[in-house]
Each structure stands twice: as C-alpha cells, then as structure tokens.
C-alpha cells in the first residue's frame, strides 16, 4: 500500500489521474446535471482555448533559462481581431483570413523567440513587453473608422465560419475532435519522438551540458516561442468562432491561467521537466472544476480563487517532491 502511494505521489500523471477521478466522482454524485452525456461532451469545448495556451506554455517553460510566455493572451486577441476584421468587416475569404491569422501568430511568436534567444533580455521582460504591445495592436486593429476612434468588436460572420467553434459531431464539439486532439497528439509526438523534443528537454534541464553536447540552444528556444505563437493563434481562431465574436479584450488574463495549468500539470518552472499527459490532465481537471462549480450554482467569482488554491497546492507538492530527491 505504501509503495503504491509513493508511486502516485512521485508520478505526476498518476497523481493527476487520481485527482481527476476523485473530482469526477464527487461532482457526479453531488452536482445535478453533471453526469449527463450532454454536459460531459459539451464542457470539453471550454477547455480547448485555454488548453492550447497551456500547451504553448509547457513548451516555452520546458526550454528552461527562465522561459515563460506572458504574451499568449495578447497574441490570441490579435489573431482573433485580424480574422474578425478581415472576414467580418472586409468580407475577405474566410479560409485565407484564418491562414493569415495563423501566420501572424507564428511571426509574433518568432519575434518573442528572436529577442529571447539572441539578446540577453530575460523572457519575462520580453514577453511582458510584447503582452502590452500586442494587446495595444489588437485594439488598434479593432478600430472601425466609421464609428470613431474606439476599439470595436466584430460579430457579423458568415454561417460557415461558426463551423470550427460550434459544430457537434456525435455530441462532441468539432474543435475538440479535429483540432485539439490532433494538436495534442502531434505535440506529444514532437516532444517524445523527435530530435527536437530530445533537444528541448536537454536545453531545459542543463543548458551548459546542452551546449557541450553540440545542441543549438538558441535555435531550440526560437522554435518554442514560435510554436507558442502558432498555438495562441489557433486558440484565437477557435474562440472567435465559438463565441461568434472577435473582441479586442478577449484574451486578457488567459496567460496567467495558462501558466497555472502548465505548472499544475507537472511542468517544472525551472525547465526540463514536464509531460504532455500531465498538462492535458491538468486542463481536464480545471475545465471540470469550472463546469462542476458552475452547475452547482457556485458563482463564477469563485473560479479564479479555486484555480489559485489548486496552484499553491500543486507547487507546494512539487517542492516537497523535489526536496525528497537527491541530486
């Protein structure tokens, strides 16, 4: 019994699985309307956008050296506004607009990555700055000159644009089946089976040893920030389609929640440690927590508080586990 307990405590994925099952059971028995097919399939859509951002944070934080991306929420917003303005205001081809949005995400991420890798500015400062620059840019894009100089949301999209965020297939949301799950699988493959993934863990866990092993540390870091931009852009597209509106403040506050979920999922803030499985479970737990609380009639204002408590608990646990380990 003791041995199993130790294994659960030391293996993050196992620990989160246990936590997930307990939470699932508690909500199923105590909250009316939780354990229904409709609710269980429907709630998954709410995990997608935050989930993509959390996966982005996972890659960035894994790369070590104080890696963090505070600009994911702003990149999401910019992409949402680019897509919104192109489709909703100028009537541009929706598919091309989405593509342009994704490319914009890649470029913004590349910008962050370039500054972090090739200058000595810490990632925290680079992405804090781009958080504000991108946020401001999103508002500038949103301005509709016909209605004066203020930021404006866009919401008149063609029917076809709602497919990505609102279509159901056998009850399951389109974006979960055709975007989120494939992205998770690709990232999991990238991390565990490719040279890039190996290099990423190496750079994150010991930068000096990575340099001495002939790994191009700068290139690895450049790639993770670029990837973060792409994932944020995907989230920006999906959220616009789901809520049928592109708002210039849509991504505010997402960056910190995304970091929280990544850390909860077992990504060590020092880099080099963390798995896709852990982060995906962490996304599931938080999504379920929000959903269960909402169904139980607990007001939304409690949501972020509960997230904070879960974070402190998880970091505390992380530290206890690290202190047990001899190096």
């Amino acid at each position: 019994m003791k041995i199993t307990w130790n294994r659960i405590v030391e293996n993050r994925v196992l620990f989160l699985t246990v936590l997930f099952i307990i939470l699932f059971a508690v909500f199923s028995f105590t909250v009316k309307g939780f354990f229904t097919f409709y609710n269980l399939t429907n709630m998954t859509q709410y995990g997608v956008e935050l989930g993509l951002l959390a996966l982005a944070e996972m890659f960035v934080i894994l790369s070590g050296g104080g890696g963090i991306d505070l600009s994911v929420g702003s990149m999401l917003t910019i992409v949402a506004m680019i897509i919104g303005v192109l489709i909703g205001r100028t009537g541009f081809n929706p598919s091309l607009s989405i593509l342009i949005g994704l490319v914009a995400g890649v470029l913004m991420g590349y910008g962050n990555g370039f500054l972090v890798s090739y200058t000595k500015i810490p990632a925290f400062i680079v992405t804090l700055a781009s958080l504000y620059v991108y946020k401001s840019l999103a508002m500038i894009i949103s301005v509709d000159p016909r209605f004066g100089p203020n930021p404006m949301p866009v919401s008149n999209f063609p029917e076809s644009f709602y497919l990505a965020g609102q279509l159901r297939i056998g009850g399951f949301p389109f974006q979960v089946l055709f975007i989120f799950i494939p992205v998770i699988l690709i990232l999991q493959f990238l991390l565990n089976r490719t040279i890039f993934g190996r290099h990423l863990y190496g750079v994150g866990s010991n930068e000096t040893a990575a340099i001495f092993s002939g790994i191009n540390v700068k290139r690895v870091r450049l790639v993770v920030y670029t990837l973060s931009g792409l994932l944020s852009a995907l989230a920006g597209w999906i959220i616009t389609s789901r809520i049928a509106s592109a708002r210039p403040d849509i991504g505010s506050g997402y960056e910190l929640q995304a970091i929280t979920i990544a850390v909860l999922g077992g990504v060590s803030i020092k880099g080099g440690e963390g798995t896709t499985g852990g982060v995906v479970l962490s996304i599931a737990i938080i999504t379920m927590l929000y959903n269960g609380m909402q169904l139980a009639g607990i007001h939304q204002i409690w949501q972020l508080g509960s997230l904070g408590l879960v974070l402190v608990g998880s970091v505390l646990l992380n530290q206890i586990l690290i202190s047990r380990r001899k190096i």
Partner: peptide, 21 residues
C-alpha cells in the same frame, strides 16, 4: 555534473543525445 550530464533525465537519454541524427 554541470557540463556533461542531464541529471534529471534518463541513462538512455544521456547516452543517445549526441547520436540522435
């Protein structure tokens, strides 16, 4: 410790890191 190893990663990872290509 500082330059040669990735202490928190596995033995097989540490051996194969230079020959991934």
């Amino acid at each position: 410790k500082a330059q040669g190893l990735f202490p928190i990663l596995t033995t097989s990872y540490n051996i194969s890191i230079t020959l991934l290509r």
